[in-house]
């Protein structure tokens, strides 16, 4: 395998720096009027795809960014295009359906897109920072019957399509070796994503963005999980200050009794 096509998945999520609020009906988190951006792990995925092309040149035939979501998710695709993706695919989901869209459905949609686009490497973030599920990459790899390299912190692709991945596991790192086609999920330390420059943002507006629906792809996206309630976590009674190391020690020994 000398040439290969990369598909990168991106999700539009509430910006990581926003302090989220549960809505009054306790059914979900308030999203209206809240700053959104590309899921940080997905930025790393896009960056890795672009770096692979910078390193391997013509061996990367194309970088296709894909997202599943409502119309606003196109902003995320434009960001990916500005970072260096060649074209984008928007799997359109209505606002109402999107509230219940789950990783199982997304992995089926991505499978259909991967097959249609003849992708050889799919790069996704290891988890989205909204639902914190951490499932889509593994599920996609299973459905495609491709190998999976999750929590990647270093990646090499040899001329013959051999993929060597350093993975972040409990206690340290492990190294696995596999072959394209592969699904890769990114960990934080894989790379440092670039900022899109203004000229590149302008150029990205002219890059192709195709729209498809779950129906076009023949995928049933009905949810299997029902969210019964979303609530605030219990509040901590923090905020007490002590004046000295002696006072701290006294409190830990006699009040908290943890020493």
């Amino acid at each position: 395998m000398s040439k290969f096509r990369i598909l990168v998945g991106c999700k539009r999520v509430i910006d990581y720096a926003v302090k989220i609020r549960v809505n009054s009906g306790k059914t979900a988190v308030e999203t209206a009027g809240v700053k959104h951006s590309m899921n940080p792990f997905d930025e790393i995925a896009v960056e890795e795809a672009v770096r692979l092309r910078e390193k391997l040149k013509d061996r990367v035939s194309e970088i296709v960014a894909v997202t599943c979501g409502p119309t606003k998710a196109q902003e995320t695709l434009r960001t990916a295009l500005a970072m260096g993706a060649d074209r984008a695919i928007h799997v359109e989901i209505g606002e109402k359906e999107y509230a219940d869209l789950q990783p199982l459905a997304v992995s089926k949609l991505l499978k259909a897109v991967s097959e249609k686009e003849k992708a050889d490497l799919v790069i996704l973030g290891k988890q989205a920072i909204d639902d914190d599920a951490g499932q889509t990459g593994q599920m996609l790899a299973g459905l495609l019957n491709w190998p999976q390299a999750t929590f990647a912190s270093e990646l090499q692709i040899a001329e013959d399509g051999t993929v060597t991945v350093k993975r972040e596991v409990d206690g340290g790192l492990d190294v696995i070796s596999t072959k394209l086609p592969t699904v890769l999920t990114t960990d934080l330390r894989l790379n440092e994503p670039r900022y899109a420059s203004l000229p590149n943002i302008m150029k990205a507006k002219k890059k192709p963005l195709a729209k498809v629906t779950p129906k076009d792809l023949g995928v049933d996206i009905s949810p299997r999980l029902t969210t019964l309630e979303v609530k605030e976590p219990p509040k901590r009674e923090g905020g007490r200050k002590v004046e000295s190391v002696d006072e701290l020690l006294d409190k830990l020994k006699n009040e908290a009794k943890v020493l």
Partner: peptide
């Protein structure tokens, strides 16, 4: 969910 800033019952 949301880094532990909300708790969901599913």
């Amino acid at each position: 969910i949301y880094a532990g800033n909300a708790i969901a019952k599913v």
